[in-house]
Amino acid sequence: MTAAITTMYEENYHVYGARKMWKELGRAGHQVARCTVERLMRAEGLKGVQRAKSPRTTRPRAETERPADLVERKFVAERPNQLWVADITYIRTYAGWVYAAFI
């Protein structure tokens, strides 16, 4: 069973964890318990790819000071350079987190 797990692990680009590996083995006709797949993968040092946590961008609290709404939600300017609005967002990529700012 270890040979089958190792082969499937390599065929799937070293991405599958125990749960996906167990399902893939079942589709291939191998009847094996999920805990057995977990144990065998751990013994071989095989790990699936783990998703990164989302960054915690804000920590709202009642006592935290909020910036004033200087435009009172009216985002229309009568002339150029009268009103500037900015925002920032976080984008997850394979290389890590990318921060995009818009003005």
Rank of each mutant, 00 (worst) to 15 (best):
T89V: 02
A62H: 10
M1G: 11
K53T: 04
G26E: 10
V15Y: 00
V49F: 05
I103Q: 12
R39A: 13
V15K: 01
S54C: 09
Y13H: 09
A18R: 07
K53L: 00
M8K: 12
I5K: 01
I91A: 06
R51S: 03
T58Q: 14
S54W: 07
R79G: 07
A95L: 14
R42K: 15
I88G: 12
L83T: 07
T64A: 13
M21E: 04
E78M: 08
E63D: 12
R73E: 06
R79Y: 14
I103Y: 11
E78F: 00
T58R: 15
Y99M: 12
T89K: 02
C35V: 14
R39C: 05
A62N: 06
A62I: 08
T7N: 12
A86M: 15
A4H: 11
A62Q: 12
Q82T: 02
T64L: 11
R66K: 13
V76L: 09
D87I: 12
Y94T: 12
A101Q: 07
P60K: 12
R79K: 13
A33T: 13
R19D: 12
A18E: 07
V76N: 10
A4P: 00
Y90V: 00
S54P: 01
T7C: 07
P55R: 14
M41L: 08
K23M: 11
A68C: 04
D87S: 11
S54Q: 09
Q50T: 07
A18G: 02
T64P: 00
F75T: 10
A33D: 14
Y94S: 09
A68L: 14
W22F: 11
G17P: 15
K47W: 00
G17H: 05
Y13R: 06
F75G: 04
L83G: 04
T36V: 12
A33V: 12
R79P: 00
P67Q: 10
A28V: 12
T57V: 14
A77Q: 05
W22H: 15
A33G: 15
A3I: 08
A86H: 09
P55C: 09
V15H: 02
A52R: 07
A52I: 02
A77K: 06
V98T: 02
G48Y: 03
R73M: 03
I5S: 02
V37I: 09
E24C: 10
R73Q: 08
W84M: 03
K47F: 04
P60S: 08
E65L: 11
